[in-house]
Design a protein around this nucleic acid. Structure first.
Length: 242
DNA sequence: ATGGCTACGGAGCGTAGA
């Protein structure tokens, strides 16, 4: 089974880019973040024509996640927080979730505390699903290690100690971030971030122990970041032998 | 250089992204 997670920065603005990635990689499950559209305007039929069932959890203008799957989507749950940042489902015999962790703006901003609360709640979710086959993909908006940021010594948003501690707590539940060694996943639109490879590794795949047992390999699809009108995030891919 | 760029809502330019 092949699963792709991607912060698309507007699903409607990125339709052509998404079609290309689907054609090139044929994921069985596609986890989207930052869809930026309410459910009634989500391009559901477009994905159905590509062969996917769709479970969107959106809101007007910002945030928004979705699960697209070639399998039936069962036990869909999106009531995780006030904003549209989480959806889980049982599909193809496994549990999957699409997660969009708040950005946090800057350390000690109100949004920063919302981010810390979100990560704390996510840890509880991990504990609930610890013994299940659970794959969590998404934009975690945290660069867990110094090597996940292009600038040495950066300790601003996405790299503050409290965020990193909470990501460490996610790992300590027994889940593994299987793409830890695959490099950056986000590059700023500004200042030629991508062509200068000034990136952050913000998009992660956390697998429960049972899911880890089937993990084959993964990758960051950097070519999608170099496409016309790209998202500022690259898709990340996770291959399982099931 | 606290800028740079992109998308959104709503019809200006402010807000968010990270």
């Amino acid at each position: 089974m092949r699963i792709i997670s991607w912060n698309v920065n507007s699903v409607r603005a990125r339709i052509e880019n998404i079609a290309k990635v689907v054609a090139d990689y044929a994921p069985d499950i596609l986890l989207l973040q930052e869809t930026r559209v309410e459910n009634s305007l989500f391009p559901t039929e477009y994905f159905e024509d590509l062969g996917y069932n769709v479970a969107p959890n959106g809101q007007k203008g910002r945030n928004g996640v979705a699960i697209c799957s070639k399998y039936l989507l069962e036990e869909v749950k999106s009531d995780f927080c006030e904003e549209a940042r989480y959806t889980e489902a049982f599909s193809g015999g496994i549990f999957v979730a699409s997660v969009y962790v708040p950005n946090g703006q800057e350390e000690d901003a109100p949004q920063y505390y919302y981010k810390l609360d979100f990560l704390q709640k996510l840890k509880n979710k991990f504990l609930d699903f610890k013994d299940e086959f659970f794959v969590v993909g998404g934009d975690f908006n945290v660069a867990p290690y110094p090597r996940d940021v292009y600038t040495d010594g950066y300790d601003g948003i996405a790299a503050t100690s409290r965020e990193r501690e909470l990501i460490k707590a996610l790992r300590e539940t027994g889940f593994r971030d299987v793409l830890e060694d695959k490099g950056y996943t986000w590059w700023d639109y500004r200042s030629r971030g991508f062509s200068n490879d000034r990136g952050f590794r913000l998009d992660h795949f956390y697998l429960s122990e049972k899911a880890c047992d089937t993990f084959v390999d993964g990758d960051v699809i950097r070519s999608a970041r170099g496409a016309e009108r790209p998202s500022d995030h690259a898709p990340v891919l996770c291959e399982l032998k099931i």
